[in-house]
Computed example of a mutant assay.
Amino acid sequence: MTNHSHDVDPDTEKIEIALLLEGIFRKYGHDFRRYSYSTMRRRVWHRIHLEGLPTVSALLEKVLHDGVLFHRLLRDLVIPVTEMFRDPDMFLSFRRNVVPILREIPYVRIWHAGCSTGEEAYSMAVLLHEEGLLDKTRIYATDISEDALSRAKEGFIPIDRMKLYTKNYQASGGLASFSDYYVAEHGLVMLKPSLRKNIVFARHNLVTDRSFNEFHVILCRNVMIYFDGELRDRVHGLFHESLASGGFLTVGSKESITFTSRSGCYDAFDDRNRIYRKNP
């Protein structure tokens, strides 16, 4: 298929994409205006080719008048990339170094921001169950995508990922057998409902929504890599406001708080695994 995007004047294309993102915000309330331009451009053109359209402007016209097409585009813009016990070393460090501190707290609140289809929140539930902390913990798992959240609530795991997830679980310091946490039947794998009882799945938009509680741990991993610097700073402000004194913030392996306006507000508790502790 011809890549029309190569034939467009780059300045014109920037205007078109800015108008598209502005239109999406005004019509549907989803704010992608401060997301990384290169990421948005790539995902927008992916949808343009699938729809057989010639330009970004043609996509904008369709999106404003066709809610079904908008939801197809939305799925492209919030592509969920997640797995159980992703970056196992982080979970191992959390288990060894953060859990002993959480034991001292009467009731623990954890926020998984940008939880996608829920794998990370379920991973945390498994870890806390094994450490005897799940019953005194409430996990809030939030995402911008209703589709991702409805899948998260169902608790299904793609059967072709079980080998990877089992390997991740073992490398993260798992104390049991990963198969203890799911049931498999008719080619489907479902996480045991007991893991879900202390997880609240809810829609929350990091770009436009406010803080909604005080947390002892916030995990936002591999979400802010899609934001521009100004938006990243704003979201870090939200997290700082939402964290209890001495609380923990964990970001993705390719992310850091070093170059944000909040870098002086945290100690590098485990910099290699991107676990930071809010200064008292």
Rank of each mutant, 00 (worst) to 15 (best):
Y266S: 09
S116I: 11
K254D: 03
W45E: 10
G118T: 14
L164T: 15
S177P: 11
N198F: 09
E83C: 09
E104L: 11
D270G: 01
A268W: 00
R203W: 01
S242E: 13
P88I: 01
R262H: 14
E16Q: 15
R95H: 07
V189E: 06
R86F: 03
G67K: 11
V217E: 02
N279Y: 05
A148F: 08
D66R: 04
V68E: 15
R221D: 06
S253Q: 12
E13A: 05
G252Y: 02
I225C: 08
E51P: 02
L127A: 12
K62D: 07
R43N: 03
L92P: 02
F239S: 02
G173L: 08
D135R: 12
R86V: 02
R210Q: 13
D209T: 03
Y169I: 02
R47Q: 14
S245L: 15
F94D: 02
Y181E: 07
T166Q: 09
E154V: 11
N3F: 14
A268Q: 00
F32K: 13
C220K: 14
V68C: 04
D11G: 05
D9W: 10
I257C: 01
L92V: 03
N213R: 12
G173I: 01
A176D: 11
D228G: 15
H112W: 06
L219K: 05
I218P: 09
T142Y: 00
V108D: 03
F239R: 12
F239V: 04
Y37K: 12
V251E: 03
H46I: 07
N222E: 14
E16W: 15
Y140W: 10
H129I: 09
G118C: 14
L195Y: 06
I159S: 13
S194K: 13
C265W: 09
D147Q: 13
F248Q: 02
Y226R: 14
Y107A: 04
N213F: 07
G173W: 03
N198S: 14
D135G: 06
A58W: 08
G132Y: 06
P80A: 08
T250K: 05
T258K: 06
R138F: 04
I159V: 15
D7Y: 11
A171F: 00
Y37H: 05
